[in-house]
Amino acid sequence: MILLLSSIAATLALISTILVLYEKDVAKAVVLAGVESVFYALLLQVFLAPDLLIAYVGIGLGLNTVVLLYVLTKGERYEEA
């Protein structure tokens, strides 16, 4: 049961990563990268690694989203195809 939950979380993280790759809107891509980190946090909790979990929540979620969205206010939102 607990392994089924972890497999579902890993699959959703993979789908999120593929969507980040093909996204033309950069702001949506930054937020989707945050979603991927959220699923990794659940996966690391199921695999009993709380030290990696706190690093993922601090860096992958907090710092990444704040810094990239701050940089994006000074640039273009949509990238050219």
Binding site: V31, Q45, L53, G58, L61, G62, T65, L69
Partner: peptide
Amino acid sequence: FLLIGVIPLASWVFLLDVVVARY
């Protein structure tokens, strides 16, 4: 020890809302 990520994750929701609205 597994409860260590709960409170930062719950406060990240508010941080994301504030950052996106400011952007």
